[in-house]
Design a binder for these strands. Structure first.
Length: 327
DNA sequence: TAGCCGTGGAA
DNA sequence: TTTCCAAGGCT
């Protein structure tokens, strides 16, 4: 088992011991044998494709991302191609991936890359961090997966694997800690190429085997080294608090966005507040989304907040005819 | 830093 | 049916 004290006290050189090397071997072998064939993992995938995939994958499962990613790559194969279109087109093409502000930020990142980096996705973590919508995880992931850099990638999967395998806990703490970042850095193989595969492999292990709810320990390549299993699978030491959804502003925002995404013309503002009599549209999904919005029976003030919030966030634009997606 | 920001599938 | 969770980021 890996000695956690060694890893946590790593100011200086990353701790290297036989058990860490053993973990590297086991995970890298397992990953080589079982990795999913995802399009953004292929050798011919551009840095831009990897960046887009990483943003889409923020809080959204692979199975829902893949088809949208394929459409984006077909339509916008380069940052410049996306930057040349209105941001509203990015929001529309985002579809129902959720958190549509990510689409807005990706469009803004494409513009920044086009004007500030000659159209090429930057390769350093600092430059990536300066782009909108790119935080510590995504910057490290792009540097590692697109440019082969040796970076500690720390996502929810890797945090969970480390919590169990090394720290003996059922789940990582609610918030990412500096100790976890040091731990991840200390676990990284020395060779850059190995470190990239290690990051991807541990992430894959968390996604497929060491899952949040019912981990498949019987299929785990490092079960024999797992501190959590050795400790008798202790329960989590905190209760995760779920996000409210029904009756919240977020639900109303989502319903409004569904209307705007499918609208080819500005949507009259009154239609968001009054049950539609004459929609002014051909029968279709816009009216269906409006009906769904009104079925929420949201308070008038809540609807006002949602519209104001979407305008403020830049996800919607007020025009004389009503509301539409931004230019 | 805790709270907010969408959506849909699995348990 | 309800709850939980998914390759986070931003303020």
């Amino acid at each position: 088992m890996v000695c956690i004290e060694n890893l946590l006290s790593a100011d200086a050189p990353a701790p290297r011991d036989a058990s860490t090397a053993r973990l590297h071997e086991l995970v890298l072998d397992w990953f080589a044998a079982t990795a999913r064939d995802l399009p953004w993992r292929r050798d011919d995938c551009s840095a831009w494709g990897i960046l887009v995939s990483e943003v889409m994958l923020q809080q959204t499962p692979v199975v829902r991302v893949q088809p949208v990613w394929e459409e984006w790559m077909q339509r916008w194969p380069t940052p410049a191609a996306l930057a040349a279109e209105p941001s509203g087109e990015a929001v529309r093409a985002w579809g129902r991936l959720g958190y549509p502000r990510r689409a807005l930020r990706l469009h803004a990142a494409a513009s920044a890359i086009t004007t500030g980096h000659g159209g090429r996705v930057p390769s350093s973590v600092d430059e990536l961090l300066a782009l909108p919508g790119i935080g510590t995880y995504t910057a490290a992931a792009v540097a590692a997966f697109a440019y082969g850099r040796r970076e500690a990638v720390v996502d929810t999967n890797i945090r969970r694997v480390h919590a169990r395998l090394v720290s003996g806990r059922a789940l990582p703490a609610p918030a990412l800690s500096a100790a976890e970042l040091r731990l991840a850095a200390g676990m990284l193989p020395e060779a850059a190429a190995d470190s990239v595969r290690w990051n991807a492999g541990v992430m894959e292990l968390g996604a497929l085997i060491c899952t949040a709810r019912s981990p498949k320990c019987g299929q785990c390549p490092v079960a024999a080294e797992c501190a959590w299993l050795a400790a008798g699978e202790p329960a989590p030491d905190y209760n995760p608090k779920g996000q409210a959804w029904h009756g919240t502003d977020r639900q109303v925002r989502g319903a409004v966005m569904a209307v705007l995404r499918d609208a080819e013309h500005p949507v009259r503002r009154e239609l968001f507040f009054e049950a539609p009599v004459d929609l002014g549209f051909e029968p279709g999904s816009v009216s269906a989304h409006l009906a769904a919005l009104h079925a929420l029976n949201a308070e008038h003030s809540q609807l006002e907040r949602a519209l104001a919030g979407l305008l403020e966030d830049g996800l919607a634009e007020a025009v004389p005819e009503g509301l539409r997606l931004p230019r």
